[in-house]
Simulated assay, not measured.
Amino acid sequence: MGETTTTSVRAEPVITRYRGLICDLDGVVYRGATAVPHAVETLNRVTAHGVPVVFATNNASRSPRSVGDHLRGLGIAQQGWSVVTSSQAAAAHLAERLAQGAPVCAVGGPGVAEALTEAGLTPVRVADLGDTPVEAVVQGLGTDVTWSELTAVGYLVEAGTIWVATNVDLTLPTPYGQAPGNGALVALVQTATSASPHVVGKPQAALFDLARSRLGTAQPETLVCGDRLDTDIKGANSAGLDSLFVLSGASRLRDLAFAERSSRPTYVAADLSGLLAPGLPLHTTSPDHLVELGPDAVPRVPSAGDNGTRLQSVVTMAWAARDEGRAVSDHAGLWATIERQLGLVQPKLATQQTSRSVAGH
Rank of each mutant, 00 (worst) to 15 (best):
T5H: 12
L334K: 10
G20A: 03
A102P: 09
F245E: 06
V137N: 05
A119I: 02
L349S: 15
Q341D: 14
P197S: 10
P197V: 08
T7Q: 15
V246E: 00
V345Y: 02
F245T: 08
L21V: 12
E135L: 14
E114D: 14
R261W: 06
R19Y: 05
G226M: 11
G240W: 05
C225M: 13
G111N: 00
L25M: 13
S63L: 09
D230F: 07
L241Y: 02
S148V: 13
N237Y: 11
A192D: 08
D306M: 09
R125H: 14
Q100N: 12
E292Y: 10
A89V: 00
W81L: 02
L98H: 05
A236C: 10
G75K: 06
A35H: 10
T132M: 11
D128N: 12
V51R: 07
W335M: 05
G120H: 05
P37G: 01
V51T: 12
R261S: 14
A106N: 01
I76Y: 00
L349R: 15
A192M: 13
G2H: 10
Q78V: 06
G32N: 09
R62C: 04
R252F: 08
T354C: 11
L141P: 01
T285P: 01
A39E: 04
A297W: 11
A60M: 08
A205Y: 08
D26F: 01
V328H: 06
C225Q: 03
V9A: 12
P13I: 04
A39P: 06
R212A: 05
A250H: 11
V54H: 09
A119Y: 03
Q190P: 00
S194D: 14
V145T: 12
N59E: 08
V36W: 05
N167L: 07
P347L: 04
V268W: 01
L129R: 03
V137Q: 05
R322W: 02
A165P: 02
L311H: 04
L150G: 07
I338R: 00
P37D: 00
R261F: 11
S303P: 00
L21P: 04
A60V: 00
L311M: 14
F245C: 05
V14Q: 01
A136K: 03
L311D: 03
A332Q: 15
T231I: 01
T351Q: 15
A218E: 15
V36A: 03
V200E: 04
N237C: 11
P281G: 07
G75Y: 01
E324G: 15
V358W: 02
R125D: 12
L229G: 02
A321Y: 04
V138M: 03
V134G: 00
A320F: 11
L121N: 07
D306S: 13
D227R: 02
K348P: 12
V53Y: 01
G32Q: 03
V107D: 02
V53R: 02
A304E: 14
V14L: 15
N237K: 13
D131Q: 13
T285W: 14
C225I: 11
P299L: 09
A336F: 11
C23I: 01
